[in-house]
Computed example of a mutant assay.
Amino acid sequence: MAFLARLNRPWIHFIVLGLALFELQRWAFPEPKPVIGPLAPARVDSLRQQWLALAGSPPSEEQLQGMVAQELDRDMLFQRALELELHLYDQVVYQRLLRNMAFLQMGEGKSEQEIYQQALDMRLHLGDEVIKRRMIQVMEQLLLAARPPLPVNEVDIAAEFESRREELRRPPRYSIEQLYFNREREDEVPAVVERIQSEGLSAEQARSLSSPFLPGYVFRQQTPDQLARNFGAAFVLNLQEAIPQAGQWVGPLRSTYGLHYVWVEAIEPSRDATLEEVRQQLERDLLSRRRATALADAIADLREDYEVRTS
């Protein structure tokens, strides 16, 4: 009872009432959140032009809104980095501002620290895209440090391997030697082929009968994609349609450049990849996806601290 009596003091009632009123005020009148956006029309148009340059067609409204959302996220991360004053402790920012000041021919006779402080006073860090990208990168690293992605274990790798078995299938590989005939010499091809067959010439022996071919004449263990880089897609299609057999001549086959008479030395058929062959790739892909997911979740949480305006 003595304890309760001690609590029955006007000054204690005043403190409790004050705290209650303070909390009530915070609940009824919260601090306004920092505002991010909306993007200026010029920036939206710039995003639209970037898409057009890369895709060859204008973005859909959904695609444009996706780009706008990403840009607003970048602005938010940059704003958060500035609030944390990360730019004051980053050497990339420091050196970038010094270079900018040198380009502007300002700060003559001053020390580097004085020039750097002058650049900050001029707020040059706010309009520099290199600094913005750097600060966004640092913020992403901080967010991931606070919410690291889940580690990848053997069970994850095995499951990923099974789900992507067809995608990871190893393509066939061809070991070939070829004789090339440019368009001016295509009429000679039947006679050359007949001579090779009648005299039993090897590809190396018959090479002097063909035209020079800049990529070369011998190609070992080449995938279809690798052959296409040297001969073009039409050549690969014609080679596959000929159903080549190891130890036989094929052709002549047409490519973008002319005709090719091809000696097939060996063919490694397409096959399933082994887990060990693709383990590192699978682990990288899983980590990359989990990092992207963890970062997206962290950015979504960060949005709760801001008022993001899309329009």
Rank of each mutant, 00 (worst) to 15 (best):
V130W: 08
Y116T: 06
V92M: 05
R254K: 15
I12Y: 11
R290L: 07
Y116V: 03
T256G: 10
E307R: 11
A242M: 04
D297L: 15
G18W: 11
S210T: 06
L168H: 03
A159Y: 05
Q79R: 00
E108N: 11
L287F: 08
I243G: 05
L84F: 04
Y89P: 00
P41I: 01
H87E: 11
S208P: 00
I176A: 01
Q226H: 04
L253G: 01
A298P: 08
I136M: 13
R289E: 13
M106D: 05
F161D: 07
S111E: 10
W263C: 03
E304T: 11
R207W: 07
L7P: 03
L7W: 11
V278A: 05
E129N: 10
A228W: 06
E114W: 04
A298E: 04
Q240F: 01
I196R: 02
Q117E: 14
V152M: 05
L227K: 06
I15S: 09
Q245K: 14
I176Y: 03
V250T: 11
N230Y: 13
Q50S: 12
D272R: 04
A146N: 12
T274Y: 01
S198T: 13
P224G: 08
I36S: 05
L7V: 03
V236T: 09
S255P: 01
F235R: 02
P212D: 11
E62V: 14
P38Y: 03
Q118Y: 07
R96W: 06
R183C: 02
R309W: 00
I15W: 12
L201W: 10
R290S: 06
L227D: 06
L4S: 09
G107I: 07
Y257F: 13
R254I: 00
R147H: 15
L144N: 04
R183H: 13
A228Y: 01
R26L: 13
R271H: 11
R291I: 04
D45P: 00
R185A: 11
Q95E: 15
Y257E: 12
L275M: 07
S198I: 01
D187N: 11
A300G: 07
H13N: 09
L143W: 04
E154S: 13
R80Q: 15
E265D: 12
H260Q: 01
A145P: 00
A296M: 05
E114D: 14
R96I: 02
Q137L: 06
Y257T: 00
I136E: 14
A2S: 11
Q178D: 03
E199K: 13
A203N: 07
Q49G: 01
I196K: 04
G258L: 03
Q91H: 15
S208T: 12
S208M: 04
L239N: 04
G56D: 09
W263M: 08
E204K: 13
M1C: 00
V16D: 08
G216M: 10
Y94L: 05
N100I: 12
P149I: 06
R185F: 08
N182A: 15
L209A: 10
A273L: 03
Y217L: 02
G247L: 03
E283Q: 14
R291L: 02
A300R: 15
R80M: 08
E129Q: 14
E85V: 03
V152I: 12
S270T: 10
R123H: 10
V193R: 13
R123G: 02
Q281R: 14
A242C: 08
